[in-house]
């Protein structure tokens, strides 16, 4: 029983990171129609940056926030490179993000080497639960709620939605569609960076951790059809918990496969129901 509770907590913590990363994918996809495969690199770069900033003597909090801001800036750069040239199709941009993700490996190995790194999270326990897991859940809840409010309650969020729904009409009312796309990359970069910063104290990071993160974040986002933030959160938590259970009662080596099979199952079920609707 105690083990089950621990697996659930671990799963929710990891699932929050997937949800944050997946939400970043969703924000970028909704506004630009680009599937950003560099999304995992935002998390890894931010996490590795925190290790360096802490080693340089920056206090906790400041180091983490700085790394998230850096990830936002890297998001902007990614957006500029992938979509900056007018007339770039979302498909071409996807390939560019894939290339940038591989390029990030080179940068990461150059600066941080290829060994796993980590840094301490929030110490202590509350009612038998590691405090850091509670921090992950709380920060995720606050940040995703704030993102939802941005979209639902501000004119900037409405303009982002407008750009996603009808770029032609958005331009006609004077919205700078390109700038909105870049803004989406900034938000996506920050969400990805936050995922990496939150998860690293409980799960070491290496230069290629982005693969597991982006596969799971993408799976979570696919559950929400790449456009629904609420389902992405649910998908992330589900993946995290299922993986923790598989890892706990079975073998950790099947964890990512579980994510892939789950994603495949959802796609198959959805394809089946779409066919039923059109038939």
């Amino acid at each position: 029983m105690a083990a089950l509770v621990q697996y659930l907590i671990t799963g929710i913590g990891v699932g929050c990171a997937y949800a944050l990363l997946g939400s970043g994918l969703v924000v970028i996809y909704r506004v630009t129609r680009v599937v950003n495969f560099a999304q995992g690199s935002f998390a890894v770069l931010a996490a590795l940056t925190v290790t360096t900033l802490l080693a340089a003597g920056l206090p906790h909090g400041l180091a983490e926030v700085s790394a998230v801001l850096l990830a936002a800036a890297i998001g902007l750069l990614t957006g500029l490179v992938a979509t900056g040239r007018p007339g770039t199709t979302p498909q071409s941009a996807l390939i560019v993000t894939l290339g940038l993700g591989v390029f990030a490996y080179a940068v990461e190995i150059l600066f941080w080497g290829d060994q796993p790194r980590s840094f301490p999270g929030l110490p202590g326990t509350v009612a038998g639960v590691q405090s850091h897991y509670l921090l992950i859940a709380a920060v995720t809840a606050v940040v995703l709620a704030a993102t939802a409010l941005l979209f639902a309650r501000t004119d900037l969020g409405r303009a982002l939605t407008a750009t996603a729904e009808d770029p032609y009409a958005a331009r006609a009312v004077g919205i700078d569609v390109r700038r909105m796309g870049l803004l989406a990359f900034v938000v996506g970069g920050a969400l990805g960076g936050l995922a990496g910063v939150l998860i690293t104290p409980v799960q070491q990071v290496t230069f290629d951790s982005d693969v597991a993160l982006v596969v799971n974040g993408f799976s979570a986002a696919i559950l929400g059809n790449l456009t629904r933030p609420g389902l992405t959160l649910a998908g992330g938590l589900l993946l995290g918990v299922v993986q923790a259970l598989v890892g706990g009662y079975g073998s950790t080596s099947y964890q990512t496969e579980v994510a892939l099979v789950l994603m495949l199952a959802v796609l198959i079920v959805r394809a089946g129901s779409t066919r039923a609707e059109t038939a």
Partner: peptide, 10 residues
């Protein structure tokens, strides 16, 4: 615009 082009979910 032709076809109105409203933002449907808003």
């Amino acid at each position: 615009p032709e076809g109105r082009h409203l933002f449907p979910s808003l």
